[in-house]
Amino acid sequence: MRIVDHPVLGKEENVPEVTIYFNGRPLAAQEGEPVAAALMAHGIRVFRRTRKRREVRGVFCAIGRCTDCAMTVDGVPGVRTCITPVRDGITVESDAGGEGEHP
């Protein structure tokens, strides 16, 4: 859910849109925003499952410290999606049980 109007920050500026692919699903995102924010804007909070216990994980710290939001971005595993900006056409994969998945 995007915050379009805000009492202090005002109306959202016009940011160019790009498309990202989350587990194959195309999603509109705003250029330069973190991948994690783009997913959350679509109400997506479950990012991945842990390899051993299959527990769900999502955004926890949002400043690149905890690595809970790490996923495979454009084929690179273990990318902290909260501090990685979207670019047009990038792929983001949960990697459930896949090789190179963040533990």
Partner: peptide, 16 residues
């Protein structure tokens, strides 16, 4: 999540 994480989302990324 951390309260600061929520704050980052709403005030910087403008996402609830």
């Amino acid at each position: 999540m951390g309260a600061g994480a929520a704050q980052t989302m709403i005030n910087v990324n403008r996402v609830l």
